[in-house]
């Protein structure tokens, strides 16, 4: 009896230690998130002023300045990426759901898409440099969008597929029974039913690409001046942050923090919005 009690205590203590460790791990994860947010706010808020939106990135050694050209450039590059990757991703996602169970190629495509989701983004930048910068002869906003599309399309594709699969089969069958052709069922019935889920995928894709730096380094490059010409090098927030954060100028570093705060807030808000969208879908 005495032995058993000892053993029992030992097991309980092991369990408690294990669970305490798991709670510490959770606390550490949360602490890092809060710490990063705190650092961003304490360094970035002071640089958030009207100048940020009205003046362009300053030349080396000059005072003040803002991020107008970088913000506009980022919006244009990300906007074009969304315009391109939404139809491509959604149609490809439809293919994987509607025809994907029947063919080996579709299975392979799904597998490769999942890998592309985590592929090193700098290599995608290298690839786009080789096909769209070296051949044309200059860096451009278009090349930047192309590089970002390589990341966004797989995200949209896989979420669209997962969301379409959640649509009950009876809905599809009912439409088929009424004599609707497959393309109508896919676009007007299943896609419509999965609308909010697909929106979730789009929001996540935008969130994912708006902070990506590595693919833009060799494609959109940077531009010190305001420019809306997507055929030329274009300023964008991530690359500006990268350059300015490593620079010796105080006002550059301050602007880098402001840009970092802007990007992080955008990404987090998009993520939370995506979750709200999805929750509405599940509850309705």
């Amino acid at each position: 009896m005495e032995m058993n009690k000892q053993l029992y205590m030992k097991r309980r203590i092991t369990s408690l230690v294990g669970l305490a460790f798991s709670m510490t791990a959770m606390a550490a994860g949360l602490a890092v998130l809060l710490w990063i947010l705190y650092v961003l706010f304490s360094n970035g808020l002071s640089a958030l002023d009207a100048n940020l939106l009205t003046s362009d990135t300053p030349a080396p050694g000059t005072d003040g300045g803002g991020l107008r050209n970088a913000i506009v450039g980022s919006l244009m590059i990300v906007g074009l990426t969304v315009l391109v990757s939404t139809p491509v991703g959604i149609l490809a996602g439809i293919y994987l759901t509607e025809y994907g169970d029947e063919s080996k190629t579709a299975e392979l495509t799904r597998f490769v898409t999942d890998i592309m989701l985590s592929a090193p983004s700098i290599v995608l930048g290298l690839f786009v440099y080789a096909i769209a910068v070296a051949t044309v002869g200059n860096f451009s906003g278009y090349a930047g969008s192309l590089a970002l599309s390589l990341i966004a399309v797989p995200v949209v594709m896989r979420t669209t597929e997962n969301m379409l699969r959640l649509v009950p089969g009876s809905l599809r069958e009912a439409a088929f029974a009424l004599g609707a052709p497959r393309w109508k069922v896919s676009t007007f019935i299943t896609l419509r039913a999965a609308k909010s889920g697909v929106m979730t995928g789009l929001l996540l894709a935008v969130a994912r690409i708006s902070g990506e730096t590595a693919p833009l380094l060799f494609t959109a490059l940077n531009n010190q001046f305001f420019s809306t010409n997507m055929g030329a090098p274009m300023a964008n927030l991530p690359v500006v942050i990268f350059q300015f954060a490593m620079s010796p100028y105080d006002n550059w570093v301050r602007l880098a923090w402001a840009g970092a705060l802007l990007i992080t807030l955008t990404v987090l808000v998009l993520n939370i919005l995506a979750r709200v969208f999805f929750r509405e879908k599940v509850s309705s």
Binding site: V32, L33, W35, G211, A214, P238, A260, V267, L268, N271
Partner: peptide
């Protein structure tokens, strides 16, 4: 909420981790 918080940690762009690492 806690699961979401961990997922948000994944959403923070990597350049932010870089700045955080360098300066803090």
């Amino acid at each position: 909420p806690l699961g979401t918080a961990i997922e948000l940690l994944a959403a923070v762009p990597s350049i932010i981790y870089g700045m955080f690492g360098l300066f803090v």
